[in-house]
Design a protein around this nucleic acid. Structure first.
Length: 472
DNA sequence: TTTTGAGTTGTTCGA
DNA sequence: GTCGAACAACTCAAA
């Protein structure tokens, strides 16, 4: 009888789990184990909310494992030490885990492999395509998205048969001790129900039928006032659904699209999955992006870093409605619409002239889907310090963005109740309301809702000059 | 090695 | 109100 440990990290699922399947192929007994790593919880980029989502997902996973005759073992402590103990207790002859490419995870796994007396086998699965399958012909990594995505798409489309079914049985020792998981938060605090079941339902709802949301994605994905996106990111973050299953759904939708526009929409959604893998690749191959700009010359930008401005941004009190709505949605739910992320991020960097790393850290502390690769890539894209050949002139105008993507103001009114009764024509620039109109709307600028903390036109010139100085 | 085409998501201005 | 052009120069990928 051989025993194998399935070391769970960010693959909280039974369906299409290569680490689990490989462990099952090599061991007749499986020990599913999660090690609560105090170093991760204590990180300045850590988030209680994300941890709560993770623990909720572990509860769901523990139940699914128990249904199959197994037991999830949770231990607190340093991974190498805890795994060594688990190996001793169970007599395991190997440890299997899904490879994680972040710098912290890579270093951790290297030291764990060195410390263990049994082999640590790492499998693919974090990404839909093996990471190394999307390198240039000379073996070096891409640094531009479009050629990367072309190479990614050259591979054979995913098939249903590529998906590994959930095992029906998970035989393993059930008498081993397990630490308790923290109690789940109150339901009102959980804007996302954790677990693989919920993830599958969301994906199914997003792609089902010829009028599925995925077929309107190209148009509606930019509308924070509408539910035009799958909202799968927290689940992908923790592997509650496999990237491969999501990509397969995209391929299937492309194939079955009723018309060219629908096909384009489904393809756009696939492109977003490819973006995720692109940034995972960038962080892996260029780990310096964690500490500074992808293009190091931008580390010399003369940031202003005004603490009061930063606090106003965090609190959703900048006086720009679309920015404030975005930041309050984040604080309230741990999630922010992608268009809103770009607008809020652009405002911090380009209007407030605050180092993008401040915003990156704040997002990581708030976001349930906070992922070091995607978050870093997104911030560097916004700041123009990253892989994107950033046109110097791409400075978002928070008024124009609001008018274009929240045309009726539903998003702003949802999250900024002070502006509830402001007429739509003033909603995205409420400081232009005449005094009488302010009284009528019950919204006095500078009193019940802040005046803009910076003048966008002035700020735009300032950031263009600051960046020009760096280039020169 | 050299050359060529292209680069997520925008804004503003003037016709 | 709509539309197209202008907005730098540079780096990357591939032929």
């Amino acid at each position: 009888m051989s025993v194998a440990i399935w070391w769970i990290r960010r693959d909280l699922r039974l369906t299409d789990n290569q680490a689990l399947a490989t462990a099952l192929a090599h061991g007749s007994q499986i020990v599913p184990a999660f090690i609560v790593d105090p170093q991760l919880l204590a990180s300045p980029y850590g988030s209680d909310r994300r941890a709560a989502f993770l623990f909720g997902g572990l509860r769901a996973l523990a139940a699914a494992i128990a249904e199959r005759g197994g037991k999830l073992i949770v231990r607190h402590g340093e991974p190498a030490t805890q795994l060594a103990t688990l190996c001793r207790e169970s007599g395991a002859s190997a440890v299997y885990a899904e490879r994680d490419y972040s710098p912290y995870a890579t270093a951790r796994d290297t030291s764990v492999a060195a410390a263990l007396s049994v082999p640590l086998h790492l499998t693919d699965g974090l990404t839909a395509r093996p990471m190394m399958a999307a390198l240039k012909d000379d073996g070096t990594p891409y640094t531009v998205y479009t050629p990367y995505s072309r190479r990614w798409r050259q591979q054979v489309p995913l098939q249903r048969s590529d998906i590994l079914p959930a095992p029906e049985q998970l035989p393993g020792p059930t008498s081993m001790a397990s630490d308790d998981l923290p109690e789940p938060g109150a339901p009102s605090e959980l804007s996302f129900v954790p677990g693989e079941g919920e993830a599958k339902q969301r994906l199914a709802a997003f792609v089902a039928g010829t009028d599925a949301p995925i077929y309107g994605y190209a148009n509606y994905r930019n509308r924070p006032d509408l539910a035009g996106t799958a909202q799968l990111s927290p689940y992908l973050r923790f592997g509650m659904i496999s990237a491969r299953l999501a990509a397969l759904a995209a391929y299937t939708a492309i194939e079955r699209a009723p018309d060219a526009d629908s096909r384009q929409s489904a393809d756009t959604w696939l492109a977003e999955l490819i973006w995720r893998e692109f940034y995972i690749s960038i962080l892996h191959h260029f780990p310096h992006v964690r500490r500074g700009s992808f293009r190091p010359e931008y580390d010399a930008v003369a940031w202003q870093n005004d603490e009061a401005h930063f606090a106003a941004w965090c609190a959703g009190q900048t006086g720009y409605p679309i920015v404030d709505a975005a930041m309050r949605q984040l604080a309230a739910t741990g999630w922010m619409h992608n268009r809103a992320r770009m607008v809020a991020a652009s405002f911090l960097v380009k209007d407030l002239l605050i180092n993008w790393r401040w915003g990156e850290r704040w997002f990581m502390r708030q976001l349930i889907d906070g992922d070091p690769a995607a978050n870093n890539g997104g911030w560097q894209w916004t700041a123009g310090t990253g892989t994107d050949a950033a046109p110097y002139f791409r400075v978002f105008n928070p008024v124009t963005q609001g008018q274009k993507f929240d045309p009726d103001g539903a998003y702003v009114r949802r999250w900024v109740p002070e502006l509830q009764r402001v007429p739509t024509k003033y909603l995205h620039e409420p400081w232009t309301m005449p005094r009488s109109e302010q009284t009528r709307a019950g919204c006095i600028i500078g009193s019940t809702y802040p005046a803009p903390i910076v003048d966008h036109a002035v700020a735009r010139e300032r950031i263009l000059a600051a960046y020009a100085a760096v280039k020169a």
